[in-house]
């Protein structure tokens, strides 16, 4: 464990908590893409199957359970409890166009052709594009509530911090995982436009408005 990965995991945890608080407190999931939340649930499910047969540390196990529970809990809140507030007309990104390529690529480019390894690789590829429906929704509505932009900032920061973790591990532990690194860079790049708007607008108290 290193400081970059710890901060990354905490940023990820904070993002998930911010989202649950936003939906629970405002009793609304307006501005949130249910499609992205479905993709995150698929990512965590396919990545954390090793919970069954591999114990790494209490921290690792607890965080995996929290991420799984929070992602399914968010889907429950969005598609059941607060279904009336779900923006079905704007949340129209075709996620099959993200899932299929990730699955095909995982079958072609992986470290080992074994079920758990393919699923892990699939989850890495899918996670790198899982935020697209959410960014698409924000661009369609043209704006986002400030708490939603804080959620996105934390979520985007988590994988950006992981990049520093990979740099650290390359020099300190002399090991690297190209699949995770390339996907992590793609994932972080997708947030760049949002990061720019967040830092230049939201941090100055303005609302996050995307140029229409």
């Amino acid at each position: 464990m290193n400081i970059f990965r710890l901060l990354g995991d905490l940023s990820h945890l904070l993002a998930i908590i911010i989202l649950l608080v936003k939906i629970w407190k405002t009793r609304s999931c307006a501005g949130i893409s249910g499609k992205s939340q479905i993709l995150f649930a698929v990512v965590y499910t396919s990545r954390y199957l090793d919970l069954i047969n591999a114990f790494i540390s209490p921290y690792n196990t607890i965080m995996k359970i929290v991420f799984l529970a929070a992602s399914y809990g968010t889907i429950y809140l969005m598609y059941m409890k607060f279904k009336a507030t779900y923006d079905v007309n704007h949340d129209t990104f075709r996620i099959e166009f993200l899932i299929a390529p990730a699955a095909v690529l995982a079958l072609i480019v992986n470290h080992a052709f074994e079920p758990l390894e393919i699923l892990w690789t699939f989850s890495i590829y899918l996670e790198s594009v899982a935020i697209l429906p959410q960014l698409f929704l924000v661009s369609k509505t043209g704006e986002a509530e400030s708490i939603t932009s804080h959620y996105l900032f934390m979520l985007g920061s988590y994988r950006a911090l992981y990049i520093f973790n990979w740099i650290y591990r390359y020099y300190a532990e002399n090991h690297y995982d190209l699949i995770a690194i390339v996907a992590g860079i793609v994932q972080t790049v997708l947030y760049c436009d949002f990061f720019y708007l967040y830092i230049t607008k939201v941090l100055k108290g303005k609302k996050l408005q995307l140029p229409a």
């Binding site: 973790n165 532990e173 090991h175 995982d177 995770a180």
Partner: peptide, 10 residues
Amino acid sequence: GTREKSKDEL
């Protein structure tokens, strides 16, 4: 391989 080590990442 490299994969073993990054298994401890979330």
